[in-house]
C-alpha cells in the first residue's frame, strides 16, 4: 500500500519575499577623493583591523574620508539610521564575519 506525504521544506528557492529588489551598487571609476564607509559588526577584533584598513585605503587609493559605523547588534542587519547615512558615501565596506 502506498503512502502519500507532504514536502516539509519551504520549497520555493531560498530567498524570502523581502529580497526581490536586490541589485549591486554601481561600481566606481576611482576611490581617489572618495568617502568610504565601514560598517563594523562591533566585535572586539574588528577595531584594530578597520584601523589598519582605513590607513591602507588612504595610502593605496587616495581615499579622502573613512566613516566608521558600528552595528548595535552584531547578529542583526545594520540599523536603519546607519543605512540612511550610508547613502552619503561613495563606497561601503562591511564586515567582518568573524
Amino acid at each position: 500500500m502506498s503512502i502519500e506525504v507532504l514536502d516539509p521544506t519551504y520549497g520555493d528557492g531560498l530567498a524570502g519575499a523581502g529580497s526581490q529588489e536586490f541589485a549591486l551598487a554601481e561600481r566606481l571609476e576611482t576611490l581617489a577623493g572618495a568617502t568610504v564607509g565601514f560598517i563594523s559588526n562591533g566585535k572586539q577584533g574588528t577595531v584594530r583591523f578597520f584601523d589598519a584598513l582605513e590607513r591602507e585605503l588612504i595610502a593605496q587609493y587616495g581615499v579622502a574620508h573613512v566613516v566608521r559605523e558600528v552595528k548595535s547588534n552584531y547578529s542583526a542587519p545594520a540599523d536603519p539610521d546607519i543605512l540612511d547615512r550610508a547613502k552619503e558615501w561613495n563606497a561601503l565596506v562591511s564586515g567582518i564575519g568573524d
Binding site: 576611490l31 577584533g45 584598513l53 590607513r55 591602507e56 593605496q60
Partner: peptide, 23 residues
C-alpha cells in the same frame, strides 16, 4: 580566521592584503 586572538601586526597584514583586493 580568527580576528579575536590575532596580533595587531597580523591584522595589519591582513588589512593590507584586503585593501589590495578592495579595488
Amino acid at each position: 580566521h580568527p580576528f579575536s586572538s590575532a596580533t595587531t601586526d597580523e591584522l595589519g597584514a591582513r588589512a593590507r592584503r584586503v585593501a589590495h583586493t578592495c579595488g
